[in-house]
């Protein structure tokens, strides 16, 4: 009996059921807190025509950027897609569709999706190209856009520590979109640096409660730095 034991022991098992044409929601901001091994597994698996929802789309050769090499992504929902030549090329060729979404709206779309809220109103984007085709409604004299929430067939998440119940803690700013993505997947897979013994995580300090998590896997991470800035 597996009960609440959500551990899996191979990346193949972690992404079992991922098929062509599915929507994958990924945590991470830039290259910080990205589920790098789960992304690598999608590349290995060769799943195609994916819709990827993520704040960014990696860089050339790392992060979600590796899925561009074999043209596995057909649509991206993101707030910023710079720092990636191959991406630009596929965008200009029309091989990839991009829905640019304000960062806060993207975060809220995931949060709302996971919370069973189909849409919400926000002032962000009113009067801009983001508002095209969207319902605008006035509340207390101010205009707001209706934005629909997002859910995914899979959510891929990078945590710091988890227990076998799927309770997850994130480390520093590697938290970012991860806890939101975690709530919005039909199947949520979390890869972590360490799986700790039951009872070791303080229940008051859990970022993602295990109820959102279907599979947990322990991995090793490169954690590439985009801009190494230091003081003397």
């Amino acid at each position: 009996m597996a009960g609440f034991d959500k551990r899996v022991y191979s990346y193949e098992e972690a992404l079992a059921g991922l098929e062509d044409g599915m929507t994958v929601i990924a945590g991470g901001f830039g290259l910080c807190g990205i589920p790098e091994n789960l992304i690598a597994e999608i590349k290995r698996k060769g799943t195609r025509q994916l819709t990827v929802v993520s704040n960014n789309c990696g860089v050339d050769g790392f992060g979600l950027g590796v899925l561009l090499t074999d043209r596995q992504i057909s649509k991206v929902v993101a707030s910023y897609v710079g720092e990636n030549k191959l991406f630009e090329e596929q965008l200009l060729n029309g091989e990839i569709e991009v829905i640019l979404t304000p960062q806060g709206t993207l975060a809220e779309k995931m949060r709302a999706g996971g919370a069973g809220i189909p849409a919400f109103f926000t002032a962000t984007g009113v009067g801009t190209p983001v508002a095209d085709g969207k319902e605008v409604r006035e509340f207390k004299g101010r205009k707001y856009l209706m934005e629909e929430s997002i859910t995914g067939d899979f959510a891929i998440v990078k945590g710091w520590k988890a227990d076998h119940f799927g309770n997850v803690v994130y480390r520093h700013t590697a938290q970012n979109f991860n806890p939101l993505a975690a709530t919005a997947g039909k199947i949520t897979v979390v890869e972590v640096e360490e799986i700790v013994e039951p009872g070791e995580l303080d229940p008051t300090q859990i970022h993602t409660p295990g109820i959102y998590v279907d599979r947990v896997i322990c991995g090793t991470f490169e954690k590439r730095i985009e801009q190494r800035t230091i003081r003397k």
Binding site: C32, G33, H172, T173, E226
Partner: peptide, 25 residues
């Protein structure tokens, strides 16, 4: 330097005393 500690410009940074860290939402 810590890869898990960056700002919105993706630069490595530190947190001051009194700081808090949270999700994008």
């Amino acid at each position: 330097v810590d890869a898990d500690m960056i700002n919105a410009g993706k630069q490595t940074v530190t947190a001051r005393i009194g700081a808090s860290i949270f999700s994008s939402a």
